[in-house]
Simulated assay, not measured.
Amino acid sequence: MTQTPRGAGIAVPPQVLHVAVSWRTGHGVPDVDVSALLLGSGARVRGDADLVFYNRTDHPSGAVRHLGRSAPGAPGSPAADWLWLDLARVEPEVERLVVVASADGGSFGQVPGLDVRVTDAAGATVAYRAIGDATTETALLFGEFRREGGGWRFRPVDQGYATGLAGLATDFGIVVEPPPPPIPGPGYVPPSAAPVPPPPRAAPPGPVADPYGGEFRPATYQGRGKETVRCDPGLPPGRWVLLEIESYHSLSTTIESCDAQGRAEEYLLAAYEDDVRARTVALVPRARPLTLRVEADAPWTLRVLPLSHARRFDSHIEGLAHDLVVYEGPSGVLDFLHGGVSRFTVHRHAPPQDPLYDDEERDLLVNGVGEVRASAAVPGPGLVRISGDGPWKCAVRR
Rank of each mutant, 00 (worst) to 15 (best):
T2F: 05
A11R: 10
P14I: 08
P14T: 12
H18V: 07
V21W: 00
W23V: 13
L37Q: 06
L37D: 06
L38D: 02
L39W: 04
L39P: 02
G40V: 09
G42P: 05
A43T: 11
R44Q: 14
G47P: 02
N55R: 12
P60F: 00
A63T: 10
A63W: 00
L67R: 08
A71R: 01
A71G: 00
G73S: 08
A74P: 07
P75W: 09
L83C: 01
W84F: 08
L85F: 15
E95V: 03
V99H: 12
S102V: 02
A103T: 06
G106S: 11
F108V: 10
G109N: 05
G113L: 09
D115C: 11
V126D: 06
Y128H: 13
G132W: 00
D133Y: 13
A134P: 03
T135C: 04
T135Q: 13
E137L: 02
A139T: 01
L140I: 14
R147G: 15
G150E: 12
W152I: 08
R155H: 06
D158Y: 14
A162R: 13
A162T: 14
L165E: 03
F172M: 08
I174W: 02
P179G: 08
P182H: 05
G185Q: 01
P186M: 06
P186T: 04
V189A: 01
P190N: 07
V208H: 08
G214T: 05
F216L: 05
R217Y: 14
G223R: 06
R224T: 13
E227C: 13
D232W: 04
L235N: 08
L235A: 09
P236V: 00
V241L: 06
V241D: 08
E244I: 00
I245F: 12
H249M: 11
S250A: 15
S250L: 03
L251Q: 03
T253F: 14
T253Q: 07
I255P: 08
D259A: 13
A260M: 05
A260K: 11
A264Q: 14
A264H: 09
A271P: 07
Y272C: 05
E273F: 00
D275T: 09
R277T: 12
A278I: 02
R279F: 14
T280K: 04
V284A: 05
P285R: 01
R288S: 00
L290R: 02
T291Q: 13
R293W: 15
T301I: 12
T301W: 09
S308N: 03
H309Q: 15
R312M: 09
H316C: 00
Y327M: 11
F336Q: 06
G340V: 09
V346E: 01
H349V: 15
R362W: 14
L365Q: 04
L365T: 06
G370E: 08
G370K: 02
R373Q: 14
A374G: 01
L383Y: 07
V384F: 00
S387A: 15
G388Y: 07
D389I: 11
P391R: 12
A395D: 11
V396G: 09
